[in-house]
């Protein structure tokens, strides 16, 4: 199926990605080409084939409930674009948590 400019704009919104009009236009064409190229995949995948999410069949990889050292607070906050009161500062939030 072909993606429209609006489809791509919606995806960009979902991905929190600001795109310029030029970027949008170019992506629409490129994504179509790529999606056509990958179409063979959906045809080969029949119902009886089980999907693989992990290449190797490891299970039950767990650790003991033991407390280990956290990072020094200064190191944590040193990376931040903005800090206030020992916390990461962000501009005002419009939406609400899911």
């Amino acid at each position: 199926m072909a993606l429209s400019r609006d489809d791509v704009a919606k995806l960009a919104d979902l991905a929190r990605l600001e795109l310029t009009e030029t970027e949008l236009e170019r992506l629409v064409g490129q994504l179509d080409l790529i999606l056509t190229a990958v179409d063979s995949v959906s045809q080969a995948a029949t119902a009886e084939v089980a999907p693989t999410s992990h290449a190797l069949a490891l299970v039950n990889v767990m650790r003991d409930d033991v407390v280990t050292a956290s990072l020094p607070r200064e190191a944590v906050l040193a990376m931040a674009p903005a800090v206030e009161d020992g916390r990461f500062r962000v501009p005002r939030i419009l939406g609400e948590s899911a």
């Binding site: 990958v38 995948a45 999907p51």
Partner: peptide, 10 residues
Amino acid sequence: YYGSAQKTRT
């Protein structure tokens, strides 16, 4: 898409 690709992986 993703589901088919995982089957192809198999």
